[in-house]
Design a protein around this nucleic acid. Structure first.
Lengths: 103, 103
DNA sequence: CTTACATATAAACCTTTACTTATATAATTA
DNA sequence: TAATTATATAAGTAAAGGTTTATATGTAAG
């Protein structure tokens, strides 16, 4: 691990506006798919597919609670990942709008 | 600047193995195109096209010296760029092989 | 001024990617 | 068990990306 190919692969996950915003949202709090989709004004299938990529890359983890599947940032990631997420504008406002009553 | 789109765009430049290795080489010392191509066992046009992208993204700068064009890391870049390049294996050995006598 | 060398650019090709639309699965509630 | 809601998956499509091959530009040296 930590090969050039591996790092490039991981950065590829971060090099997309939608996925970057998903991670910025999840940095604030765990969220279900429909809330993420609403917050980003995108569609459910689109967000689901991005989440799958992030999960495969071990950047997020999922927890099912009843009908909902909550996604959260995987904290044991490379140092540069946190560095990037610190340099990006906060999604706190967008995340706060969803206090588990929306879907 | 520092919008999600802009950060994603910049990370896209780093999310390619070849470009990541170019930056890791240039982190050690400035190099001409043919030396970079030799160090990475790639072709001149391929490296030239990657360098153009890096230059457009302001990650490298170029200096012509006679027949050769030397590329160097642009130091006034985002903090997370240095962070990433610090987490990647060193290309010192590969860079040292080229002491401006090869092309 | 012609040849050689370094680099850039362009075109072509193939692969990958992001998104949409449609459908399937799974849990919940009436 | 039927209807509803949340999510996943699959297929299709258009756009972007990486590499190669061929050619053009620019500099230097005979």
């Amino acid at each position: 691990m930590l090969s050039y190919a591996a790092v490039a692969e991981e950065l590829k996950l971060l090099s997309n506006k939608t996925r970057l915003m998903i991670l910025a949202l999840l940095k604030e709090k765990e969220m279900c798919v429909c809330d993420i989709a609403a917050a980003l004004e995108s569609t459910q299938p689109n967000i689901s597919q991005h989440l799958r990529k992030l999960k495969t890359g071990n950047l997020v983890r999922e927890t099912r609670r009843g009908q909902w599947i909550y996604y959260a940032i995987n904290r044991d990631n490379k140092p540069y990942i946190s560095d990037i997420l610190n340099d990006v504008p906060s999604m706190k406002h967008q995340a706060m709008q969803f206090q588990s009553e929306s879907c």
